[in-house]
Structure formats: C-alpha cells, structure tokens
Amino acid sequence: MTILGDLGAASFLPWIRRHADRLGLAQTVSHADDERIELELDGPEELIDMMEVGCLLGPIDVWVETIGREPLAVQTS
C-alpha cells in the first residue's frame, strides 16, 4: 500500500501501527518520508480495504492525497 500526501507529522506512523493492530493486520513499513509511506500488509482483502479507508483520513495533522495498492509477489517456500 502506497500512501501519498502531506505525511510529515510524527503522529502518522504510530497512528498507522495502532490502526493495523486494531484490525489484527500484520504490517511492515518499508518506506517512510514526508510525502510517501509504503506499507506491506498481509490479510484478507476486506481488512486491507479497512486499513486503506482508515488511512485515507488518518490523524488531523496529516493530509493523504491518494492511496494505491499492489499485490506483493507471492512468497514461495
């Protein structure tokens, strides 16, 4: 999941972690700067939808412009 916008507030990464925890979603932040955050999420489609919808708003001091999603390469054992 790629989040683009005005994301510089220090509150956003902890907010994302809390929201993922409340959804029971495992998440990894693979990139984070003031304009782009990349998350790797693993879970049912509807739950990832819920993560996206929540992050579209985020905390008050952040402005999210768009969120894009791409499936990760399937891990083979």
Binding site: R18, H19, E46, M50, V53, L56, L57, I60, W63
Partner: peptide, 25 residues
C-alpha cells in the same frame, strides 16, 4: 470525529470518509 482512531471504517463507509476528508481540507 475527523480522526478515525477510535473507529473501524470499512469500504462500505467510503462516502462518510470522503465527506470527512472534504471537511478536513
């Protein structure tokens, strides 16, 4: 709330989220 940190919006709530984003902006 303009911060959904105490809520769990789903895809069905997309219009509400768009409305809150617009209010925020």
């Amino acid at each position: 709330p303009l911060d959904p940190g105490m809520e769990i919006p789903t895809r069905a709530d997309l219009t509400s989220i768009a409305y809150r984003r617009w209010l925020k902006r």
